[in-house]
Design a binder for these strands. Structure first.
Lengths: 215, 215
DNA sequence: ATTCATTTGCGCCATTTTTCACAAAAACGA
DNA sequence: TCGTTTTTGTGAAAAATGGCGCAAATGAAT
């Protein structure tokens, strides 16, 4: 087991492994080998073993990994054994779509509040999630014990929102605004930039000779 | 100028450069150096020069890059000088949110059709975009000259949708279903997996000692 | 008990990506 | 014209990531 710093590529793959293990568990599988896991996606089995070895020796030689055991280990490593309380800033269509997005509702992420600056929206509800005034973020955040924030506001407002939430002590932020944000390094910012993804598709159409990158 | 194969990391950065150049152009800047561009994000200036050098010699030594010139070159490289016609499969909340997402409306991507399998929704409209029956995809796709498809359906249906659209000759697909899809290599598939991003935030909260990966 | 078939963990090498460092080119002032 | 400053383009070094191959551990079969 290595104690060096873990690459984000590794933790991203852990998420993928976890989903696969949940599927295997529901199929009733007791053990699984790295080779079989590797075939599910298009990965190398050594990669999987190396990723897992970063955190301990979970496997048994000659056998493979115990599905339930590995699953709960990865859950613990990823911090998914604890509930996360999510606030979404921006109660527009994107915010509304995210509020009942499968990924939030089916997992340990619980969307407990929406925020907006539009007086028309404040006080309303989407699904059964209340919309608060962004000006009250710090107080509501503390009361509702929010630990993850999703920014779903137009690009020009994103930096301001980020400053409000980081001032309130939030340390994990997912940003959908297609703009590079400046952030203190104690805060983990993950930007999902759909524009980049789209333009990458456009590049592929324009330059069909280029070999397909691995996803 | 190198003619080797271009990494996806490079093309992703081109998107970022392009946005920055558009901002600079609207500020009236005539030229920009790689060093100044690098400061805008947290990048190394050599990286920027090398990315650009993949496609030609756009800069002038001692001066930098001409903003307007570089901008139109990157647009052309990314295929953004031509309009793209997008179909969104899945007229749920996510599909609806994407239909009027800034990235689509403000750029050369035009959402021209939605598809669903729910008879209740088919025939309706979101914004002013018509919802068609997914069973008619091939015909509608040809008529409307669709070249990019966005999959916004629940995970269990995603593989089936992918097969329908690829059979209809679509070559660029963006997928929001959190599931690994199998696809022929002539097709460019870009999966945006929000679950992975969320879980990566959770990992950061659980393991605060880990240094912050660069976004 | 011994052999055989598996499969992990890991050292080591290959490939990819990033960064450094500097010669060559351009602009400008004296 | 010539030196000074700036900034590109790129070869080479460094860092990060991925993949190979094998010793060691395990379980099953004989």
């Amino acid at each position: 087991m290595k104690v060096e710093k873990i690459s984000e590529l590794t933790t991203n793959r852990l998420s993928v492994y976890l989903r696969c293990l949940e599927e295997l568990a529901s199929e009733g599988a007791k053990t699984v080998s790295s080779r079989r896991l590797a075939k599910r996606f298009h990965l190398n089995s050594a990669q999987i073993r190396k990723d897992l070895a970063c955190f301990g020796e979970f496997g048994v030689r000659g056998v493979g990994y115990y599905v339930g055991d590995l699953r709960s280990n990865i859950q613990r490593i990823l911090g998914l054994d604890k509930e996360h309380r999510v606030a979404i800033i921006g109660a527009g269509r994107l915010g509304a779509a995210l509020a009942d997005y499968y990924g939030f509702t089916q997992t340990n992420f619980d969307v407990v509040a929406l925020f907006d600056s539009d007086k028309e929206k404040i006080g309303g509800e989407i699904g059964d999630i209340r919309i608060f005034d962004i000006a009250d973020f710090a107080a509501v955040s503390e009361g509702k014990k929010i630990d993850v924030v999703v920014i779903a506001v137009p690009a020009p407002f994103a930096q301001g929102v980020l400053e409000i939430v980081s001032a309130a002590g939030i340390r994990a932020v997912m940003n959908f605004a297609p703009i590079p944000l400046k952030v203190a390094k104690e805060i983990k910012l993950k930007t999902v930039d759909l524009t980049i993804s789209l333009e990458s598709l456009s590049y592929f159409l324009a330059q069909p000779g280029t070999p397909n990158g691995k996803e």
